[in-house]
Amino acid sequence: MLLREVDYARPSTVEEAVALLAGYEGARALAGGQTIVNVMKSRAAAPDVLVDLANLEELRTIGFSADGLLEIGAMVTCAQLVNSSEVDVARPILAEVAATIADVQVRNRGTVGGNVCVNDPTNHLPPLLVALGATFTIRSRESERTVPADEFFLGVYLTAVGEGELLTKVSVPPSNDAGDGFAGVTIGKHGTYIVDAAATVSDDGVRIALGCVAAAPVRATAMEDRLAGSDFSADSVAAAAQGLGASLDPPSDVHGSADYRRHLAEVSAVRAVLQAAGRRKGA
């Protein structure tokens, strides 16, 4: 409950934030704090410097890029996602899933950037953003780069955002003809996921990503391939999921054995795909 000593700064621009992150050893960005403050309370980790992004208004916006991508600032809260008309128009699954993250208080503070950069295996947004094919914009003092979702999530607390860098926004392609789905099993309603799966079904094919089965979201590529040209009937989707569980090496813990998670991965993937296919425009 009681944190170690820490230094704190609240920059007013992204440039200043990046300079602080790069200039101080052991500096960490502080977004909504809904994970990092808890980690510091348990003293499981103790950053030397917290760089509070609270004043960076430019990271709090939701809008569209010139080429029509939905752009979500890293400091956009889950509550903002839930209530955004842009999200509702472009990719409503984001709001739908964000509305089930923890509770009102956490959604009011917790941010998109925080959720993805922490990349706790049970977090909702990493598998969803992988399924949606999002891209991540990362700033450093020298440059700005864009990383696709498949390359962004590396491990627990480990993403493509390196030392001295800052995630500034997440870009998501609009739905167009795609349908999206999300399913899984939680510990209690809106609780922590035991396993979850996100899926998107479009003319370009199917993308499926699983959460809670490894240190980072796992694409179910074999299942995706088997669904090419599928009629998305319950039977054919279930058939496509065969073998998915066996291809995984999920953890065992108090909430489920590895075998249970392998099984849930198949069930969740099937449910997410069926939901996505059912929502696909013209389906």
Binding site: I187, G188, K189, H190, G191, T192, V254
Partner: peptide
């Protein structure tokens, strides 16, 4: 103890 806090030791919330 694997359930040493209210994350892993889930008690009923209003929606449960």
């Amino acid at each position: 103890l694997l359930t040493a806090n209210f994350y892993d030791y889930h008690v009923p919330h209003a929606m449960d």
